[in-house]
């Protein structure tokens, strides 16, 4: 029942996302073809592009064609490079995914242990320090953190490459930039969630049985405390994907976010449309996945 309801919602959202991204090009003030090609383009070129984008047809029909093309994996052609957008996405998307995954790992491996530590030292100075630092760090925007990390580790210390993707270590700075904020949020969530669980009766029972503190925390408490963390990780994947736009631009990382920014600068709207669509759909899919995982992991909400 839940799956049915959830997938119905999933499909309305996907449909809405498709509709909104489709309408984007119609929001261009004036004639989108003229904006894209510039004023010097010949009228034959303009008509050709108009026909290619289907802009000379009724709106509803255009949307039908758009959906039909997408269903066949056809995003149209880039106006700038004249190559299929699907090809561009295919090369750029995995790069972003790699960056997002590494940032997620950084977030998890820093955030969760730090959160546990903070919860165990609850009320002591260590806890207060961790809390203050993490609350403030989660408000640092990527377009400042990125340059500062670059300045320290690449320019002053010279340990890591400044930007680009040539070396294996190039991924470290952008991943740190993205993972930093995530780890701060996860620290706070883990702390709150674990503190709540630690007051439960079964934790007292586990301690009374004489289990070591390590087993009590890791086996008994963390298992329950992890549930809300799953949801947060899912939601945070969104800010990771959106943050990738800025981070990739700073570090010249050739992912989908940079493709988006480049396409905007070149007024290559079909590419802009495709990038926005892909990122939004990834986010929707991740959220569906975490929702389902959550229900499967927690028997209490499985039936609702």
């Amino acid at each position: 029942m839940f799956l049915l309801h959830r997938s119905a919602r999933f499909f309305t959202v996907v449909f809405g996302v498709l509709l909104l991204t489709f309408l984007l090009i119609h929001l261009v003030p004036g004639d989108p073809v003229e904006v894209m090609l510039g004023e010097s383009a010949s009228s034959a070129d303009r008509e050709a592009l108009r026909a290619e984008l289907g802009l000379n047809q009724p709106l509803l029909q255009q949307f039908g064609i758009y959906l039909n093309k997408l269903a066949h994996g056809d995003f149209g052609n880039s106006i700038h490079t004249r190559t299929p957008i699907a090809e561009l996405i295919k090369t750029r998307y995995p790069t972003t995914l790699r960056l997002a995954m590494l940032s997620l790992c950084i977030g998890l491996f820093v955030g969760i242990p730090l959160g546990i530590y903070s919860a165990l030292k609850s009320g002591r100075w260590q806890d207060i320090l961790v809390t203050i630092v993490s609350v403030r760090i989660s408000a640092v925007p990527a377009f400042w953190l990125g340059p500062v990390l670059m300045l320290i580790f690449a320019v002053w210390l010279g340990w890591l490459p400044v930007s680009g993707m040539e070396s294996n270590t190039s991924i470290i700075l952008p991943a740190l930039t993205l993972g930093f904020g995530l780890s701060a949020i996860l620290t706070r969530m883990t702390r709150t969630s674990l503190l709540e669980v630690l007051n439960e009766d079964y934790i007292r029972t586990a301690r009374a049985k004489g289990l070591s503190e390590r087993v009590v925390i890791l086996r008994h408490a963390m298992r329950a405390a992890l549930l809300p963390i799953i949801t947060i990780v899912g939601l945070q994947m969104g800010s990771l994907l959106a943050g990738a736009v800025i981070t990739e631009t700073i570090f010249s990382w050739d992912g989908i976010g940079r493709l988006l920014v480049e396409s905007i600068e070149r007024r290559d709207y079909p590419v802009t449309q495709a990038c926005v669509l892909i990122v939004a759909l990834s986010y929707v899919a991740v959220n569906l996945f975490t929702d389902v995982m959550y229900r499967l992991a927690d028997p209490r909400v499985r039936m609702t």
Partner: peptide, 18 residues
Amino acid sequence: DIFLAFPGILLAIAFAAV
């Protein structure tokens, strides 16, 4: 729900772009 499906400032970027 549809607006929330666009993570962070992505939709604002898209609107500002067009």
